[in-house]
Computed example of a mutant assay.
Amino acid sequence: MSRLFVTGRSGFVGQHLEAALLVLPTADWQLIESARFDLLDPASLDAALAETCPDAVIHLAGQTFVPEAFRDPQRTFEVNLLGTLNLLQALKRRGFSGTFLYVSSGDVYGRVDESDMPIAEHLMVKPRNPYAVSKVSAELLCQQWAYTESWRVMIARPFNHIGSGQNESFLVADMARQLVRIKRGLQAPVLHVGDVDVTRDFLDVRDVVAAYLLLLEKGQRGEVYNLCSGVERRVSELIMDMAHLAGVTVTFKQNPGKFRRAEQRRVVGCSEKIQKQTGWKPHAEFSETLLSVLSDWEVREAH
């Protein structure tokens, strides 16, 4: 069984990855248990890798919240770029020579003309916020290591992914929390929203995790892969679908504090590359995904 080291294991995607490895009958990966570590502390990374050298790494950890990146761009760059460099160097000191999957973001494409949709990997990146710039920078760093080391380095660019366990600072989780509170009479039937007249390409986090594991097995060295559904969904319609599933009637109230600077109006991606090279495709029914998010918040709000 191959040894897998995952950063960000306690986060939203990391928890789903760990759950998937427990139930997948074909999972050939054993998660490396390690003490808590700090990407900005090389000594703690060395300690985390001291007992076992991994065969593969999935680097999930990072500062992922765009408004926070505008608020504190320096910290975002420290965690996402310097933290990635520290991890790469710690792995080299440990004698690592396996597969390294860097998890970037579909946000790196930035402003995309409608003529360039659906968005494919060959499109030039035009990051429009500090978070996306930090991700592009870390991508380039990882690609440099792919050229100069014998490692099999790959980059994944997941688009918006949702599911149970996501922080309420993200849109779908925030809407689900509000809908549950409305259903319980804890909030007036008014959803506080940002700009909902935009479209996004949403993917179930369980499909994202499945893609990561397939990339470890079948992805090609030095390549970049989009992870997306290929379906464009208007945010306002998604929210109303959630309200219907929750059994409540709501209206919207726009909150200027929820608007993002440098917002892309439309997003829809192309995942033909990963589908052709690994056989991956999204399986989750979107209504089931939304129900899983609502059910998760039913539990959370009960405590």
Score class of each variant (00 low, 15 high):
Leu4Gly: 00
Leu4Ser: 01
Phe5Ser: 09
Arg9Asp: 10
Ser10Ala: 09
Ala20Leu: 08
Leu21Cys: 10
Leu22Glu: 14
Val23Tyr: 08
Leu24Val: 07
Ala27Thr: 08
Ile32Val: 09
Ile32Met: 09
Ser34Cys: 05
Ser34Tyr: 14
Phe37Asp: 00
Phe37Asn: 01
Leu40Ile: 15
Pro42Thr: 02
Pro42Trp: 10
Ala43Thr: 15
Asp46Cys: 00
Asp46Trp: 12
Asp46Asn: 14
Leu49Gln: 12
Asp55Asn: 10
Ile58Pro: 12
Gln63Phe: 01
Thr64Asn: 13
Phe65Asp: 05
Pro67Gln: 07
Phe70Asn: 03
Arg75Ala: 10
Thr76His: 08
Thr76Ala: 02
Phe77Trp: 15
Glu78Ile: 00
Asn80Ala: 05
Leu81Arg: 02
Leu85Ala: 15
Leu88Gln: 13
Ala90Thr: 09
Arg93Tyr: 00
Gly95Asp: 07
Phe96Asn: 02
Gly98Asn: 01
Phe100Gln: 00
Phe100Asp: 01
Gly106Tyr: 12
Tyr109Pro: 12
Arg111Met: 07
Asp113Val: 00
Pro118Lys: 00
His122Lys: 06
Lys126Gln: 07
Asn129Ser: 08
Pro130Ser: 03
Ser134Phe: 04
Lys135Ala: 01
Ala138Thr: 06
Leu140Ile: 04
Ala146Trp: 11
Tyr147Cys: 03
Tyr147Asn: 11
Ser150Arg: 09
Ser150Ile: 06
Val153Gln: 06
Met154Val: 09
Arg157Tyr: 08
Phe159Gly: 04
Gly163Ser: 06
Glu168Tyr: 05
Ser169Phe: 06
Leu171Thr: 14
Ala173His: 06
Ala173Val: 03
Arg177Ser: 12
Gln178Arg: 06
Leu179Glu: 07
Arg181Ala: 08
Ile182Ala: 00
Arg184Ser: 08
Gly185His: 05
Gln187Pro: 01
Ala188Val: 04
Val196Leu: 11
Asp197Thr: 09
Arg200Gln: 11
Leu203Asn: 08
Val208Gln: 12
Val209Ile: 03
Val209Thr: 14
Val209Glu: 05
Val209Met: 00
Ala210Phe: 13
Ala211Pro: 09
Leu214Phe: 07
Glu217Tyr: 07
Val224Thr: 10
Asn226Tyr: 06
Ser229Cys: 03
Val231His: 12
Glu232Phe: 00
Glu232Asp: 02
Glu237Trp: 04
Leu238Lys: 04
Ile239Ser: 00
Ile239Arg: 02
Met240Cys: 01
Asp241Met: 02
Met242Gly: 08
Leu245Glu: 14
Leu245Thr: 13
Val248Asn: 06
Val248Gly: 09
Val248Arg: 03
Thr249Lys: 11
Thr249Arg: 09
Phe252Ile: 05
Gln254Tyr: 07
Arg261Lys: 14
Ala262Phe: 13
Glu263Cys: 00
Arg266Cys: 01
Arg266Trp: 14
Gly269Cys: 02
Gly269Gln: 04
Glu272Trp: 12
Glu272Gly: 06
Lys276Met: 02
Gly279Met: 03
Trp280Lys: 08
Pro282Gln: 08
Pro282Ala: 10
Ala284Ile: 15
Leu290Gly: 03
Ser292Met: 03
Ser292Tyr: 05
Glu298Val: 02
Glu301Gln: 09
Ala302Pro: 11
His303Arg: 12
His303Trp: 15
